[in-house]
Write a protein that binds this DNA or RNA. Structure first.
Length: 781
DNA sequence: AACCTCTACGTTTTT
DNA sequence: CGTAGAGGTT
C-alpha cells in the first residue's frame, strides 16, 4: 500500500485516504482523477471492504472497463471483477432484473433504445389520429424523457399544472395522454427505455423499503465518477443509497459539465455539501496531462464563465508551443489544412497517427475530414455516427434475439414479423396493434390467441401468423437450454435471414454478411470473456442486456493499428491525445445555434470547448472556416466568440492575415467578399473551368461534383438510347481512371446501360474489377 | 410486396 | 447536401 501512495501528490493522497465520511473531490482536467479513484478503491479493499461491498458508478462503459482494468492491476482480477462497477444504467438494470417482480416486470425485460422508443411514440401518435407535425415524435420523446428524469410518472404529469399548461400553450394538450399510453405499452411489452432504468430504480427503492435496506447494507461504500453529469434521478438514487451511512465519495469537475441537455444538473455537485453533512472537499489542481501553455489557455477561456467553483488548475510540465489558430476559406479547405498539418507533424516531428485527434461539435462534420484524410492516405477511425447496433441487418437479427427472450417485445416484433417476407403486411400488423390496444394485451398475446381477441383476419393470414408464432415459440424453447452462440446460429438459419442475406454475393449483401459475421464474432467473444470470469452457461439474455447498453464507443479497438481519431467533443471526454485539432470554431456551430438563447447554454458550450482543449497533451490547433455548406447552401460563418475568450498571448494566430493579435474576421465583415468568390469556385467546378486557387485544382480534381458530372452524362445518354459501348459519358475504353480505394487503372470494357451501366477496369494494383457506375467513386484522369 | 422517384426535412451533444 | 419517408408504379 505504501508504494501506491508514493505515486500520488499530497492532495491526491488526502483524497484517497479520507474514507471516514462523505467527500467531494473536485478534479481539474488531467489532474489524475481516475488514478485517485482506482487507488481509493484499492485502499478500501486493503482495509477490509469486500469487493461486493463497493459500488462504483461511471457514465460510460469504457470508463468502467478502464477503471476495472487498472484496479485489477493493483489487486488482481478475481477481486476487481467482483466489484459493483459500471454505468448507472448497467448496474441498476442488473438490480431491476433481480427485483423485477416487485415493479410489475419479469427479469427478462427488454431495454428499448432511443429509436425503439421513438418508433413506439410515432405509432401511438398515429393510432390516436394526431398530427405528427404538431406532435413530432422526437419532441414528444424529449418531453417524456425530461419528465422521467424528473421522476414524473404519467399520473404525476397529469397533476403537474406547470407541465400541463406548458403543453396547452404549445397547442399539444394530449402529450400527457401519449405519455400514459407509451407507459402502458412499454409495460405490456415488458420493456424499459433508458430513462426507465433510473426511474424504476427510484420507484423500487421508494416503494420497497426492504429492497432499499438490502442494497444499502450491501453497498457499504459508494463512489461516483463524473458527478457533474448526474441528473435528478441518478442523484436521488445515490442519495437513497448513501446518505444514511455517509460513506460516499463523489468525483467531478463542474468545468466539464457538458450534458445538461439530457438532464444533467450541475447543482447536484455544487450543492453536495448541503446534502451530506460533514462532507469534506478535496481539490486536485495539478494538471499532469498538458503543457503549461495549454492549461493557461484553457484557464483563460473557462474564466469567462460565471457559474463555477473557483480553482487554480496549473501545470508543471514544459511550457510547450502556443495554440495554433487556423482560418480557412471554406469547410473543404479546413479539411485540407488539418490533413496537411497532420502529415507535416507526422513526418517532421516524429508523431504517429495515434497521437492525433480531430474533435468536432457535430457528427455531420466528420465527412469532410474523412474525405481530406482519405485523399492523403492518412488512416483514421471515427467514433460515433450510427453505431454498429443501429445498422438495419443487425437490428433485425437482434430483434429475433429479443423475441426469443421476451416475445411481448413490441418493437422487435413489429420489426421482423414480416422480415424476411412472410406475407404479413402492414394491414395485418395494424389490425394486431389495434386489437392489442383494445384488449390491453401485448401483440404477442394477440398472435397466440387471435380468436380469443377476435382478430379480424382471413384464414390465410391466420395460417401465416400461426407459422410465425411457431417459429418464435421454437426459438423460445431452444433458448431455454442453449448457449447464446448456439441459439444465435439457430435463429439466423431458421428465421430465413441466412437465406435472405447469404444466398448471393451482391455488393450490398457482402457488407451485410460481414456485419452479421461481426455480430457473431461479438457473441463468441462475449461468451469466452464470460467463461474466463467463471460462468458456465452464457445465455442470450445476458448478451442482450450487455449490448442494449453498449455504444459503439465500447466496441473493442485493436490497439495495434495506427490511426487518427475523429469524434465529437462530447465523446472525447476523459480521453487524451498528444495533438488535438478542434475544428469548426464558428458562431452557430460552436457554439451551436441551438444553444445561444441563454447565458447558461453559452456557458455549457464554453465548457465544451474547455473539455476539447484540455484533451491535448502537447499541441492544440483550433480551426475555423469562413464559409461552410449548411443545408446544401454555402453559408458565411463568423468565427466563434470563444476564440476571443482565450487570452491571445497563448495563441499563434494565422500569419497571412494577422495584424497584431486580431482574429481575422472577428472585428469586421470581410466574409461577404470571400464568400462570393467562393461561390464562384463552386460554380466553376461544375462547369468544368478552373478556379484561380491552385490548391483547389490539386485537391478537388476528384471531387464529388466531377463525379456528378459523369453520372449526369450517363443518364442523358440513356435517354437518347445511345448504346455505344466503347464510350459512355466521358469514359471510354482505354481511359485512365482513379478510384478512391483501388487506385489507378485502365478501362477495358463498358457494359449495361442506365443504372446498370458497368465498367470493367484493370487496376494497376489490385487487378480487374467491375464497377457499377451508379455507385463507384472514381474520376477520369 | 418490392422497387423507384420525389419531396420534405433537418443538423447538437448520448446512456 | 444527405437522408428518410411518403407516395406512386410495376
Amino acid at each position: 500500500m505504501e508504494n501506491f501512495l508514493q505515486e500520488l501528490n499530497k492532495s491526491q493522497q488526502d483524497a484517497v485516504l479520507y474514507n471516514e465520511g462523505p467527500s467531494l473531490v473536485i478534479a481539474g482536467a488531467g489532474s489524475g482523477k481516475t488514478r485517485v479513484l482506482t487507488y481509493k478503491i484499492a485502499t478500501l479493499l486493503e482495509s477490509g471492504y469486500a469487493p461486493y461491498n463497493i459500488l462504483a458508478l461511471t457514465f460510460t462503459n469504457k470508463a468502467a472497463r478502464e477503471m476495472k482494468e487498472r484496479i485489477a492491476g493493483l489487486v488482481g482480477l478475481p477481486l476487481a471483477s467482483r466489484l459493483w462497477m459500471g454505468t448507472f444504467h448497467s448496474v441498476f438494470s442488473r438490480i431491476l432484473r433481480a427485483n423485477a417482480d416487485r415493479i410489475g416486470f419479469t427479469s427478462d425485460f427488454t431495454i428499448y433504445d432511443s429509436s425503439d422508443s421513438r418508433s413506439l411514440i410515432k405509432s401511438i401518435v398515429k393510432d390516436k389520429g394526431l398530427d405528427d407535425k404538431l406532435y413530432k415524435p422526437s419532441s414528444v420523446q424529449a418531453i417524456i424523457s425530461n419528465a422521467k428524469n424528473a421522476l414524473i410518472t404519467p399520473a404525476a404529469y397529469l397533476l403537474n399544472k406547470e407541465l400541463m399548461e406548458s403543453d396547452m400553450y404549445s397547442k399539444r394538450p394530449l402529450i400527457q395522454e401519449i405519455y400514459q399510453t407509451y407507459w402502458n405499452r412499454c409495460l405490456r411489452a415488458g420493456a424499459m427505455d433508458f430513462d426507465d432504468l433510473l426511474l424504476y430504480t427510484n420507484i423500487l427503492f421508494r416503494d420497497h423499503a426492504d429492497v432499499l435496506e438490502r442494497y444499502r447494507s450491501i453497498f457499504r461504500f459508494v463512489l461516483v465518477d463524473e458527478y457533474q453529469d448526474t441528473n435528478f434521478a441518478q442523484h436521488l438514487i445515490v442519495r437513497q443509497l448513501a446518505r444514511e451511512h455517509g460513506r460516499i465519495c463523489v468525483v467531478g469537475d463542474d468545468a466539464q459539465s457538458i450534458y445538461s441537455f439530457r438532464g444533467a444538473n450541475i447543482s447536484n455537485i455544487l450543492n453536495l455539501k448541503d446534502e451530506y453533512p460533514g462532507c469534506r472537499t478535496f481539490k486536485l489542481e495539478q494538471n499532469y496531462r498538458s503543457t503549461r501553455n495549454i492549461v493557461s489557455a484553457a484557464n483563460s477561456l473557462i474564466e469567462k464563465n460565471k457559474e463555477q467553483i473557483r480553482k487554480n488548475v496549473y501545470s508543471e510540465n514544459a511550457e510547450g508551443s502556443k495554440i495554433e489558430v487556423l482560418n480557412a476559406y471554406s469547410d473543404y479547405e479546413e479539411g485540407y489544412f488539418v490533413a496537411n498539418r497532420i502529415l507535416e507533424m507526422h513526418s517532421s516531428d516524429g508523431y504517429v497517427f495515434n497521437d492525433f485527434a480531430i474533435l468536432y461539435r457535430t457528427n455531420a462534420q466528420s465527412r469532410i475530414f474523412e474525405e481530406a484524410l482519405r485523399k492523403r492516405s492518412i488512416p483514421y477511425r471515427i467514433y460515433g455516427g450510427l453505431s454498429f447496433y443501429q445498422r438495419k441487418e443487425i437490428k433485425d437479427v437482434i430483434s429475433y434475439f429479443r423475441l426469443a427472450v421476451n416475445p411481448h417485445d413490441e418493437e422487435a416484433l413489429k420489426r421482423i414479423i414480416n422480415y424476411p417476407a412472410r406475407g404479413i403486411g402492414d394491414t395485418t400488423l395494424g389490425k394486431i396493434i389495434e386489437c392489442g390496444v383494445k384488449h390491453d394485451v401485448s401483440l404477442w398475446q394477440v398472435i397466440v390467441s387471435p380468436l380469443e381477441y377476435a382478430l379480424p383476419v382471413n384464414s390465410g393470414t391466420l395460417g401465416k401468423l400461426q407459422k410465425f408464432r411457431e417459429l418464435i415459440e421454437d426459438f423460445i424453447e431452444e433458448n431455454r437450454s442453449l448457449d447464446a452462440m448456439e441459439i444465435a446460429e439457430i435463429i439466423i438459419r431458421r428465421s430465413g435471414i441466412f437465406k435472405e442475406i447469404f444466398s448471393d454475393r451482391s455488393v450490398e449483401n457482402i457488407s451485410r454478411q460481414e456485419n452479421i459475421q461481426e455480430l457473431m464474432n461479438g457473441i463468441q467473444e462475449y461468451c469466452s470473456n464470460r467463461r474466463e470470469e467463471g460462468n458456465e452457461h452464457i445465455s442470450l439474455v445476458d448478451f442482450l442486456a450487455e449490448i442494449s447498453l453498449a455504444t459503439d464507443q465500447d466496441t473493442e479497438e485493436d490497439g495495434t493499428s495506427d490511426k487518427v481519431t475523429m469524434m465529437t467533443v462530447h465523446a472525447s471526454k476523459g480521453l487524451e491525445f498528444k495533438n488535438v485539432f478542434v475544428v469548426g470554431l464558428e458562431e452557430d456551430l460552436f457554439p451551436s445555434s441551438l444553444s445561444k438563447s441563454s447565458e447558461s447554454e453559452i456557458e455549457e458550450e464554453r465548457r465544451l470547448l474547455y473539455v476539447a482543449i484540455t484533451r491535448a497533451e502537447e499541441n492544440c490547433v483550433l480551426s475555423y472556416a469562413a464559409t461552410r455548406y449548411r443545408n446544401g447552401q454555402p453559408t458565411a460563418m463568423p468565427p466563434s466568440r470563444f476564440l476571443k475568450d482565450i487570452d491571445p498571448c497563448y495563441l499563434k494566430l494565422p500569419s497571412a492575415l494577422s495584424s497584431g493579435n486580431k482574429i481575422p474576421g472577428l472585428d469586421r465583415e470581410p466574409h461577404f467578399g470571400k464568400y462570393t468568390s467562393h461561390a464562384s469556385i463552386y460554380r466553376n467546378k461544375t462547369t468544368g473551368s478552373r478556379s484561380s486557387f491552385p490548391m483547389w485544382d490539386a485537391e478537388m480534381s476528384a471531387s464529388t461534383s466531377s463525379l456528378k458530372k459523369v453520372s449526369s452524362l450517363v443518364s442523358s445518354s440513356t435517354e437518347s438510347e445511345e448504346r455505344t459501348l466503347t464510350s459512355i459519358g466521358n469514359i471510354s475504353v482505354n481511359a485512365r481512371i482513379r478510384h478512391d480505394r483501388f487506385g489507378e487503372g485502365t478501362v477495358v470494357e463498358i457494359s449495361g446501360e442506365g443504372d446498370n451501366c458497368k465498367v470493367g477496369v484493370e487496376f494497376d494494383q489490385v487487378g480487374k474489377k467491375q464497377l457499377l457506375l451508379k455507385f463507384a467513386k472514381f474520376t477520369v484522369i
